[in-house]
């Protein structure tokens, strides 16, 4: 068990390309942290720097109050689950799990005991003597987790571990992961580009863009109060409607607001904080997407397009003229650089 501290960490490659800049945050012992962002944002590089697979060019990484810059990956007391599982193809499931323990020189009976426990935990007992090639994707994923668990590390690192699985299995394993975290009580650092995974798994989310940390916070903090238009549009499906302040829609929303900050660039509103009312802002429905429990209604206000989330059983079609009502305090304000501004 360990806490983690990143202090102004940066990574610049030999060619001068900067992957991560000035990243600082602390992770409490036992916390589930998700690093999320679009591809190329530096989240994997960050994880690999924590693992020691990538050299740190600036700043300091501490695991359990010990600076680990220059410490070999094997000596950091961490375990990592890779996107492609990285199981050793020439070893059985048992061999895969035993490898790290044997490297530590652990006595054989203890190795066996730990494997047996992890196998029971992950329901891998029938497969212990199989090679990875004889397993399904989900089973391989479990073996990769088993290999991490047996080492009883203080920090678990996950690099997009579910992205190679189909949607159904992904949902199932997502729940198992959360359960695993609860049972182990270890620190988890999880990288994904999928904001749903981030929202559902994380205690706190670190959202990154272009090598920089955009915002750190609990999923609901990020959802309710995004620090920038980037976060607003990344978190949530469908995302927050971000409207330029010069457009007709934004002006109509702002006209209903009592206190408006100055120097605005954009106005944001979550799709579920709007509804069809008797009076409100006039809009035209351009598309209706019934999803079962809810319906996504695409709207047009003047030249601006936005999406509203509505309950099931909406009896309107494209082309209908409606009035949109807005919940009090629903608007979010951003300046011209996309940073949040409070009223």
């Amino acid at each position: 068990m360990a806490n983690l501290k990143l202090d102004r960490v940066g990574k610049t490659y030999a060619g001068g390309v900067s992957a991560v800049e000035n990243a600082s945050f602390e992770i409490a012992d036992g916390e589930f942290i998700v690093l999320v962002g679009p591809s190329g944002c530096g989240k994997s590089t960050m994880l690999r720097m924590i693992a020691g697979l990538e050299e740190i060019t600036d700043g300091d990484v501490q695991i359990g109050d010990r600076s680990v810059n220059g410490v070999e990956p094997g000596d950091r007391n961490i375990a990592m689950v890779f996107q492609n599982y990285a199981l050793y193809p020439h070893m059985t499931v048992r061999g895969n799990m035993a490898y790290g323990l044997r490297n530590q020189g652990m006595p054989k009976p203890e190795v066996e005991a730990r494997i047996a426990e992890a196998a029971r935990f992950l329901q891998l007992e029938p497969y212990l003597d199989r090679k990875p090639s004889a397993l399904s994707g989900g089973q391989r994923q479990r073996v990769a987790m088993g290999r991490a668990i047996v080492r009883e590390p203080s920090v678990f690192l996950f690099d997009e571990p579910l992205s190679n699985l189909d949607a159904k299995l992904r949902t199932q394993l997502r729940a198992e992961l959360k359960d695993l975290h609860k049972r182990l009580g270890a620190t988890f650092i999880y990288v994904t580009h999928d904001q749903i995974e981030a929202m559902s798994l994380a205690d706190r989310i670190v959202i990154m863009s272009a090598g920089r940390i955009e915002q750190i916070g609990t999923p609901m903090e990020l959802y309710a109060n995004p620090a920038s238009t980037f976060v607003a549009e990344f978190i949530g499906a469908p995302p927050m409607n971000v409207l330029p302040v010069t457009g007709e829609a934004a002006r109509a929303f702002l006209a209903q607001e009592a206190r408006v900050p100055d120097d605005l660039g954009h106005v944001g509103i979550r799709p579920e904080l709007m509804s069809i009312g008797d009076n409100g802002i006039p809009a035209t429905i351009t598309l209706v997407e019934p999803l079962g429990a809810e319906t996504l209604v695409h709207l047009k206000m003047g030249a601006d397009k936005l999406i509203m989330r509505s309950g099931h059983g909406l009896a309107l079609d494209a082309g209908a003229e409606i009035k949109v009502a807005v919940e009090a305090g629903a608007l979010r304000f951003f300046d011209r650089d996309g940073r949040t501004r409070s009223a």
Binding site: G74, F82, N84, R147
Partner: peptide, 14 residues
């Protein structure tokens, strides 16, 4: 695959 070598490095192999 490079990740196999990296996994072995994390598993503490010299």
């Amino acid at each position: 695959p490079k990740s196999l070598i990296e996994a072995a490095a994390i598993d503490g192999a010299s």
